[in-house]
Design a protein around this nucleic acid. Structure first.
Lengths: 213, 213
DNA sequence: CGACTTTCGGCATCGTGTGACGAATATTGG
DNA sequence: CCAATATTCGTCACACGATGCCGAAAGTCG
């Protein structure tokens, strides 16, 4: 899961890797941006990295997997933040804080993140692969809610909260990705506040106004 | 979209179809239940129906599409119900009523519906294909909310409400599919009420109690 | 009958994803 | 220096989904 590359040479045995997941990720993202996701074949990505197609599938389980590695790390972070959340904070508020805490990207990461998000809506195969990774996100929330409310995570309300909070965050992500008129955290906060307010009429009036980022 | 089969013979010209979407649907559902989704090939389905694989793909655009035709019809119904909803009913309440109105299945349809739902969670490819059909559901809600709140359907709140209400309904469906201890409408109502209440602590206490159906 | 219309089958093709097996390239120990 | 071992890589083979093309099948209409 972590697989951190330490500074030391470490001198592992065996043939050294001729590429890395990160390199494949960068190459793939560039090719997807240039020619589109469906029009880019795995062979092309592998060729640019100087490896065979078979090697690509040793680094990622699917062509689409190349876009989700960072998302998966983010889910692990949310789990950790939720686990360390004080007990006296209400469930919905705890989720809101955890999501906002995790989504603090540096300015350098923003273009790549936006490129990823924009791609998802372009290809149906990509939108399809998303659900697999979203499941982990939802389960992180469901299990937290289950712990707090002392019921199984598969019960209706924990399950619903997991699904619903992810849905709200996805809406915020999408809205942010297609026009960058405000900070991502701003949209996430607005969407989650709307959920917490039960979509009352006071919330629905208008788009949240964002100071430019 | 509709393609209603009228009672009259109508005597259309050309070669008569040697099968129907419904027949393929029934055969596929049976094979999926017997051997699993991934283990069943399109060739097997086509062979049982006495047609070629090529013909199957003329009736459905994908192997998974065979499971979603009824869902797609349901989306059309929700659209119609929402369009006919009186203006003086609040947005969230209107959505709740529309969802409950559409989900009145006859007792005969229940086993097939449950079989479909259970299949979705078994195959990752199926869960993947779902997002494509869910999009139409979400858009039906988003556009309704957009009309009511006089803003584009792509704005944050209409988008969020579409995603969130679908998420709640999916949780209810899933909960219902895996143990049939209550009416489906009962779960849908409970999940949507929880959303409308903003997941307040009063809602979260316990599972909704269902009279046996 | 012949013209027309619609569905179907077979074929060929492309791309994803997976398994098997040996070759390549490194470290470790004799 | 050489063998043993470990790890990654490449090639081949294969199954399956999905799509385009074209001609054959099987009806109706005039």
């Amino acid at each position: 899961m972590s697989e951190v590359e330490l500074a030391g040479p470490a001198a592992r045995r065996g043939r050294p890797p001729s590429t890395s997941a990160r390199e494949l990720e960068v190459i793939a993202l560039r090719l997807f941006a240039e020619h589109g996701f469906d029009e880019t074949t795995v062979d092309q990505i592998a060729a640019e990295a100087g490896v065979s197609r078979r090697t690509f599938f040793r680094y990622f389980d699917a062509k689409s997997g190349v876009l989700w590695s960072e998302f998966d790390r983010e889910v692990a972070n949310i789990r950790a933040v939720l686990a360390a959340m004080p007990e006296d904070i209400a469930v919905m508020e705890a989720i809101r804080r955890a999501v906002l805490a995790v989504n603090h990207y540096g300015a350098d990461d923003v273009p790549e993140l936006r490129a990823r998000m924009n791609l998802i809506s372009t290809s149906s195969e990509l939108a399809a692969s998303a659900s697999q990774h979203y499941d982990a996100w939802e389960r992180a929330i469901s299990e937290f809610v289950g712990r707090r409310s002392r019921q199984p995570a598969q019960s209706l309300y924990p399950l619903t909260m997991g699904r619903v909070t992810l849905a709200a965050c996805r809406a915020a992500y999408e809205r942010w990705a297609e026009h960058a008129d405000a900070d991502l955290g701003h949209y996430l906060d607005a969407a989650l506040q709307a959920v917490a307010a039960g979509f009352g009429d006071g919330v629905l009036r208008r788009e949240p106004r964002g100071r430019r980022r």
